[in-house]
């Protein structure tokens, strides 16, 4: 049992993160980071709508943005206060993120496995 628990932890630590976007969105890796920090608002002619995934947020912030939740939260408070850009909505799991990204033009999010009907923009 203990072995399985340790194994499970190990698997979770190595879990891959798939950044997905509405079919109208194309972004490079650096642009993905910028979009989740409010530094990039427009891609082509599309207004970007980033959405966070509560279940994966800690790993995403660490792997993609190289920061923890405290710094991320602080960064968005400053960004929103200065530039009037709302922080990303937070969805609770992969299914909610996929549904939001599919149905919202310009939406980008991240999930733990490949999803159909969306653009996979990057894998971390």
């Amino acid at each position: 049992m203990l072995f399985l628990a340790v194994l499970g932890t190990g698997i979770q630590a190595r879990a891959e993160i798939y950044v997905i976007g509405n079919p109208d969105v194309t972004l490079s890796s650096s642009e993905i980071a910028d979009a989740f920090l409010g530094e990039k608002q427009i891609a082509g002619s599309t207004k970007l709508v980033p959405v966070d995934n509560k279940a994966l947020q800690k790993d995403f912030l660490s792997k993609v943005l190289n920061m923890d939740n405290v710094k991320y939260n602080s960064s968005w408070t400053k960004k929103s206060f200065r530039d009037g850009i709302p922080a990303p909505k937070v969805k609770s799991n992969d299914a909610d993120v996929i549904e939001f990204v599919k149905s919202t033009p310009g939406a980008i999010g991240y999930v733990s496995s490949p999803a159909s009907g969306v653009n996979t923009l990057a894998k971390y």
Binding site: K47, D83, G84, I85, G106
Partner: peptide, 14 residues
């Protein structure tokens, strides 16, 4: 207190 409404894709308020 502050609000950041988005009136459209491109139009916003603060």
């Amino acid at each position: 207190l502050y609000l950041t409404p988005q009136f459209s894709d491109r139009t916003k308020g603060l």
